[in-house]
């Protein structure tokens, strides 16, 4: 099935396995199944939130979406192109359309370059986008767009900015070439609470103005709820549930989603005595040797023998869930 018109990015059964060095030389130690069959569509101008705990594969997914990591199998399709098969001119065109914003604004900007140099770089790599004489004007526009003052900031170095300002610079860089998709990998988790809201609001405003689609990857379920139109929950390399924000948060169908949501602290002390909390036992298992059948069964309170033998597929539809015994919606 060819991607329909409003789908900008189609992810098909994406897999990434990393080999593990074994104890014995020349004998494989197995593979880490970081991402193990993930599929979704990203529509034009929407925000898809991806949530999951550390080690679930969400950052590896982000890196594959922008072509920083070669998948073991599967495909990321953008229009007629396949991200990991594209070469030469086609690949350069793709890189313009899909950009990334990283978590740590302290390490994702080159400390030895001024903001002017950092923001001009995309145009040097893609010189055909904009005439040389118009570039400085464009980067001033970009700074203005993300709420920084070009006259003050253009010739400063990254260390002269606060964390929130640096993240704005990272966003300006991602926007420079007018992408259709920005993959945001934990874009606000290194920021102070008071600054986090500024960056979230900025991302929302930019989407309204520019129509860019986001894949918003984060471990903070509250932030993801706020910004996303649809949400995908990841566990040990697989999507276990996807759906519109309101359905997934207000009536989760996968036991893991339900437990994850109930573990999030709510800033409302009045309700804390009444709140029902599902306390999951233990930590997520190792992705080197994931449990047979359903990967969540070792921490699931309603697992049966079926769960150990048969892997539940992620059904199709508006709010699919990969569980043999989904909770009542």
């Amino acid at each position: 099935m060819p991607p329909s018109d409003d789908v900008v990015l189609r992810v098909e059964n994406l897999v990434k396995h990393f080999p593990v060095k074994g104890r014995i030389p020349f004998v494989s130690g197995g593979v880490v199944k970081a991402v193990d069959g993930v599929s979704f569509d990203l529509r034009r101008g929407e925000t898809l939130g991806v949530v999951g705990e550390s080690g679930c594969g969400k950052s590896t997914l982000a890196r594959m979406l922008v072509g920083l990591e070669q998948p073991t199998s599967g495909a990321v399709r953008f229009g007629k192109s396949v991200v990991h098969q594209a070469k030469g001119r086609e690949l350069r065109a793709l890189r313009r359309r899909i950009q990334i914003v990283l978590q740590d604004p302290y390490t994702s900007l080159n400390p030895r370059r001024t903001i002017r140099e950092i923001l001009l770089q995309p145009f040097e790599i893609h010189p055909d986008v904009l005439d040389r004489r118009r570039r400085v004007e464009r980067i001033k526009e970009l700074l203005d767009l993300v709420g920084l003052d070009a006259s003050l900031h253009l010739d400063r170095y990254p260390h002269q900015f606060s964390g929130g300002q640096r993240q704005r610079i990272g966003i300006a860089r991602a926007l420079a070439l007018n992408p259709d998709v920005i993959v945001c990998d934990e874009p606000v988790s290194a920021l102070d609470v008071s600054v986090q809201a500024q960056v979230v609001n900025l991302l929302e405003r930019l989407q309204d103005e520019l129509g860019v689609a986001y894949v918003f990857i984060a471990h903070d379920l509250s932030v993801v709820r706020h910004i996303s139109d649809r949400v995908a929950v990841m566990y040990l390399g697989k999507l276990v549930e996807t759906g519109p924000e309101i359905d997934l948060y207000d009536s989760p169908r996968h036991p893991y989603t339900s437990a994850l949501l109930s573990a999030v602290p709510v800033p409302d002390p009045a309700g804390r005595r009444q709140r029902q909390r599902i306390l999951l036992a233990g930590d997520p298992p190792s992705p080197v040797n994931p449990p047979s059948g359903c990967r969540f069964r070792t921490r699931c309170w309603q697992a049966t023998d079926t769960c150990a033998t048969t892997e539940p597929p992620l059904a199709t539809g508006a709010h699919p869930v990969a569980c043999h015994y989904p909770l009542a919606a």
């Binding site: 809201a197 500024q198 509250s222 948060y249």
Partner: peptide, 17 residues
């Protein structure tokens, strides 16, 4: 602060750092 138990349309952002 965004909340997990409801969706607010717009977050208030404290300006500055």
């Amino acid at each position: 602060m965004p909340r997990v138990d409801r969706r607010d349309e717009q977050l208030y952002a404290i300006p500055g750092a």
